[in-house]
Design a protein around this nucleic acid. Sequence first.
DNA 1: GTCAAATGTGACTAAACAGTCACTATTGAC
DNA 2: GTCAATAGTGACTGTTTAGTCACATTTGAC
Lengths: 208, 208
Amino acid sequence: MNKIVTEPNRTEKRSARTRRRLLEAALEVFSEYGVDATTIDDITQRADLGKGTFYRYFSDKREITTCLVEDSMARLIAQLNKFSIEPKSIEDVLEHLLNVHYDFFVNNSGEFVLLFQGRLFLKLDRRISESMEGPFSEYLSAIESLLSPFVSVKMDLLRIRRLACAVAGFVFGYFSFAMVGMDDDSIQANLKPLRQSFVKSMSSFIVH
Amino acid sequence: MNKIVTEPNRTEKRSARTRRRLLEAALEVFSEYGVDATTIDDITQRADLGKGTFYRYFSDKREITTCLVEDSMARLIAQLNKFSIEPKSIEDVLEHLLNVHYDFFVNNSGEFVLLFQGRLFLKLDRRISESMEGPFSEYLSAIESLLSPFVSVKMDLLRIRRLACAVAGFVFGYFSFAMVGMDDDSIQANLKPLRQSFVKSMSSFIVH
DNA sequence: GTCAAATGTGACTAAACAGTCACTATTGAC
DNA sequence: GTCAATAGTGACTGTTTAGTCACATTTGAC
């Protein structure tokens, strides 16, 4: 048998690079103007490509948005599953959850608007959102998996899902308010003590 | 001097009613499709009025959005300033804050999308958001006023504003996640214990 | 080099939408 | 009732944007 995966040639490299440029440009303009307000021309102009090139890679704005959301979610979930030290308690897990979210959005601030709007629009614009149930569902499942080893078997799945909602809601909501009118240092200085308090609240909520 | 405020005649009543119908219709479609995705035709069709009628009362979508936001904010702030019992401690105030937000969004779920998107879009679509700095600023000030009698004089304004951001962020963020896939009873049953924990965290954050 | 296959392009068409305006309907004053 | 003033209307125009396609450019095979 010949090798199935061949070395990518120049054409394939160019194609992959163009696709990447489109995705990067879309993320940029989405975070500047918002997903809804962004046009295809905004994306191709930012990417310094012709408009026709966009339609060679994506059928419409919904599709590129879905790609970006899935990619962002996959990276966020990967971070959630990567521990620097093995968690010993539910407090460790919660600290980890908040740390990962914080780091993720500080290092990828563009993703914040994308994921947050995507989530909020679930019940709004069906055209874009239907294809996003998947990634967000996986996201909540990932949080559930992290928590489940530390909660009693008696605790039902609904309760864990609710906790996942609360953690995610706290982080997203706090960021959405803090990011307006606060510099990075302020956010960090402020979130730290709140985070500790929040971990304690959440823990006591779980253990009931 | 004659009375300045005369009894409204039929024409004035009709005019007021039409304006109200437009505002109600706009709130409905905003919460269904999102503010950005809504067109003027969506609003007038929902209100069962001609398109021209819209432009008789509002210059564009930005203006009717601003009206709705200001109105919602005024009612939310009024609720914040109305206590059933005099607060005796910072815990009482925080409980009150969370209760008011909860009741407000349960009874006016359409407003949730409006205020939340409005807030989030502050840094996105300048065309709509610039006129909203005011209401949201007043909102944060209202929260500050409630808290200030109970915090030490040493506590700076920035810290209070941050707490206001955290409270608002928590409530908005939690709702945004909880409202998808949770019925009203679930939200209520779930938010209550979380709310108590959150009040304790916040209190300790304030007293340092 | 030649030719074929793939990628890139922007002028073009079609559709959606904002905003206008000459007209109709309703109301108030008499 | 008449007339004037105000409210309501939807077909119309101009603008913006999505999506297409005939052509240009780049690459791979030979």
